[in-house]
C-alpha cells in the first residue's frame, strides 16, 4: 500500500519534470531572446552588471543592436562572436567551453564527481568495517569534560 503511494508519487514527479523539460510549443519572444543574449554580455560601463540589467547608454545601445541582429536573422553564436570581435573575450559573462574557458566549467564538476565517488567509496568501506567500541582514551576524554568543561 505504502509502496504503491511512493510509486504514484515518483510517476507524478517524473511526469511533471518531463512536462517542464518538454520543448515548448511557443516561439521564444523577441524580447525574451534579446534579454537572454543581453544577460550574457558584460556592461562595459558598469561594475559586474550585464547588458540586460544596466541602464547605461552603452547597454541600451547594445540591447537595441542585439534586437536588430535578431530581426536580421543572425544566430546566437554569430551575435556573440560579433561582440567578442569588437570587445574581446571578456565581454562574455559566461566563458565559452573552448580553450581555457573549459577549465572553469569542468573543474568544479570533476571535483564534485570525484568527491561523490570518494564519499561512496568511504561509505562502502565503513560498511565492511566492524563496529568499534569506545577506547579507554575516549572514556577518559568524556570523564575529563564531564568534570572540567565550562558551561557552553
Amino acid at each position: 500500500m505504502r509502496r504503491a503511494a511512493w510509486i504514484v508519487l515518483a510517476v507524478m514527479v517524473v511526469g511533471v519534470i518531463a512536462v517542464a523539460f518538454w520543448p515548448h510549443g511557443g516561439h521564444e519572444s523577441e524580447a525574451a531572446h534579446m534579454h537572454r543574449l543581453a544577460s550574457e554580455l558584460r556592461c562595459v560601463d558598469c561594475e559586474g552588471l550585464s547588458v540586460a540589467d544596466s541602464s547605461a547608454a552603452s547597454a541600451r545601445e547594445q540591447r537595441r543592436d542585439i534586437g536588430v541582429r535578431i530581426r536580421r536573422g543572425e544566430s546566437d553564436e554569430t551575435i556573440r562572436n560579433a561582440y567578442v570581435d569588437t570587445f574581446g573575450e571578456n565581454i562574455l559573462l559566461k566563458p565559452s567551453n573552448r580553450g581555457i574557458g573549459l577549465v572553469v566549467w569542468a573543474l568544479p564538476i570533476g571535483a564534485l564527481l570525484l568527491g561523490a565517488v570518494g564519499l561512496a567509496f568511504a561509505l562502502r568501506r565503513w560498511q565492511r568495517q566492524p563496529r568499534l567500541t569506545a577506547s579507554a582514551d575516549d572514556e577518559r576524554f568524556v570523564a575529563r569534560h564531564r568534570s572540567s568543561a565550562p558551561d557552553e
Binding site: 562595459v44 560601463d45 547608454a57 552603452s58 541600451r60 545601445e61 547594445q62 543592436d65 569588437t86 570587445f87
Partner: peptide
Amino acid sequence: EAASLAYGTR
C-alpha cells in the same frame, strides 16, 4: 551611441 558601440568603447 551606435558609433560608441561599433568602436567597442569601454
